[in-house]
Nucleic acid binder design. Structure first.
Lengths: 349, 349
DNA sequence: ATTTAGCACTCGTAATAAAAGAGTGCTAAA
DNA sequence: TTTAGCACTCTTTTATTACGAGTGCTAAAT
């Protein structure tokens, strides 16, 4: 019994060392190297035996007969799930991040998001990516309306997140200014706190059935407004630090680089991968072939949702090689996502 | 005399053919190949003699003794300046572009610019790039102000270009709502038509010297407003179609790709190159080493300014290899820049 | 005087071979 | 159960050769 325990201990130690070493060096790890690096009290031959076992179990792989071992996706997965200890940020790092996000002035939502991307990229030394669910997170705080000329007015919707949406409405039969201000009072009292989707539905429904005179008087305008609302982009996808990923030794190959650049340009698959698998957990890690799309089969995506009042506003994370410093990366992504939520919370209302 | 004329004629024909062929095929052009492709009525040997002369003149170069010729930057320059005929867009193409830009609904300036980038990239099959001078092109059409709560108001500036800027102002001693509406009337009548920079200066000056009571009552608020105005991003840099340039055969090399990706990420140099050399002409062409920065020494940048009411709003163009179909590219870039100006003109006021 | 056929020469590319080196897997001894 | 020792495998590097595309030059043809 004691013997198998000892063996398990060793296996774990070897796997951990191989994963860590490979993450550092990006080149296959040899038995002899491990022994000398970690001053192991058993010989390279023993290490080789253990390595062979770990390979049988699917945690390691061989590129060819005489190469050292590298972790498989399953190996990384096991490391992440059961071995890795999250590497906390230092208080000074946390403070710096706080400064950059909480105290920052941001005129537009996008400025704040870019600061966050910047922090993630610099503190993980990986490419950072972000999806922001704009449309679904517009909860009306205030609506205003600017009369521009006889043919054109501008609607402005301030969301509780601090996001500001503006919509030009063009029509030949616009109501007069004083009528418009009645409308404005009405929609402000009627729509405050509601989500964009609910607003659309409510207006549509009331246009058909409501006895409230407003809906009849302004039906033309309201229809145009709904159209404009439909045009708001669902999602925004942002990224920073492309050169971090393109300079990884594992991507040091033209066709692999093309693949990555295509993935970034197409957006769709990458966005889907960023969004998926947050059941329960607040962080999502996709390693290599765990990713549903082929374009990311040699990448790792680590992402966390950031929230405001319990609503998911978006997802921020990194795109890197499977060989990435998981402990550190996870802490940074997690921390920034929390702070991003706080920044939004504290910034406005 | 007649002889030298004939020789000149031939030289021009050979240079043209080499440039065109190399642009098509991306591989060095051989004498024999030219003769058969263009059914020349003289022999490969003669062509070789002419090629040698063109090389002496600096228009062609040799990669090694036994390779065909490729154009030098000087060769492209000569071709562009004196030989190339601009290849007009077909009426149907023009119509399609018009549809995409003039008739398009755009909620935000950036949507329109992205449509333009999309057109340029698709019609030239090159990567498209754009610089938009935001701050310097905010000429006030209308200002509005939303009272959000005791601590916070939102200024909204609608520019004559259709651009909309919003600025949150946070202060503990905000004026009351009715006072604010007085301020609003005042700034609207006072600032309409003025440029952002002038506004800043005017307010600053009047804060110090004016006897107008408004400036004294609202000095606190106005100072915060100026601060917020200073924070507006000078320029926006956008691009589309990265994979168009990364898939060029001449960039089929990891370190060259890194170079390009760095250039896109750093922005600064690329933006400077996009902006420069419009003295007189409405289109700017930078070929290879004509570019002041090393990162673009094997690239060609073709750009045109787009304007509104004679003001330069920004620059749109392509970033490609020096081996690019100049005639076609120039027409597309030029046309889109004109239409973009028209789209802005027709869209708003 | 101009053009061109002919041929030597250059250089890149591909194929092949050989040698070196790193690292494993297995066997047999400790 | 561990490990020393060694054969074996596979990559990487270097050298060699052969091939071919294309030029440059010379001498002949127009």
């Amino acid at each position: 019994m004691l013997n198998t325990e000892k063996t398990e201990e060793r296996k774990k130690k070897i796997l951990t060392s191989i994963v860590k070493t490979y993450i550092e060096t990006a080149s296959p790890v040899a038995s002899k190297m491990l022994v000398s690096k970690y001053r192991l009290d058993f010989s390279p031959a023993t290490v080789r035996n253990i390595m062979a076992e770990l390979e049988d179990m699917g945690y390691l792989q061989h590129l060819h007969t005489s190469s050292g071992r590298i972790p498989t996706d399953k190996g990384y997965r096991h490391y992440v799930d059961t071995i890795m200890e999250t590497q906390q940020l230092t208080p000074s790092e946390k403070k710096k991040i706080l400064m950059k996000l909480i105290n920052a002035q941001w005129e537009e939502m996008e400025n704040l998001l870019e600061s966050a991307l910047n922090v993630v990229s610099n503190y993980t030394n990986q490419m950072s990516v972000l999806v922001y669910y704009r449309a679904r997170n517009i909860y009306v705080e205030k609506i205003d309306l600017i009369y521009i000329n006889k043919l054109r007015i501008l609607f402005i919707i301030v969301a509780d997140s601090g996001d500001v949406v503006h919509l030009f409405i063009e029509d030949e039969n616009l109501p007069k200014i004083d009528e418009l201000s009645k409308l404005l009072n009405f929609v402000n009292s009627e729509l405050k706190g509601e989500a964009l989707n609910d607003i659309k539905n409510k207006i549509k429904k009331n246009l058909i059935s409501s006895h409230n005179p407003f809906y009849h008087v302004f039906s033309n305008l309201l229809i145009l407004l709904i159209e404009a609302l439909e045009n708001i982009e669902e999602k925004a996808f942002l990224y920073q630090g492309t050169n971090k990923i393109t300079k990884c030794p594992e991507f040091n190959n033209v066709s692999v680089l093309h693949n990555i650049i295509d993935m970034l340009e197409k957006e769709v698959e990458l966005v889907k991968m960023l969004e998926s698998d947050f059941k329960g957990s607040d962080i999502s890690i996709h390693i290599g072939r765990e990713n549903p799309y082929q374009c990311a089969h040699n990448c790792c995506i680590i992402s966390a949702q950031y929230k405001l009042k319990g609503r998911v506003l978006g997802t921020i994370g990194v795109l890197g090689p499977t060989r990435l410093p998981y402990g550190r990366t996870v802490s940074v992504v997690k921390y920034v996502s929390e702070i991003l939520g706080q920044a939004l919370e504290s910034a406005l209302f």
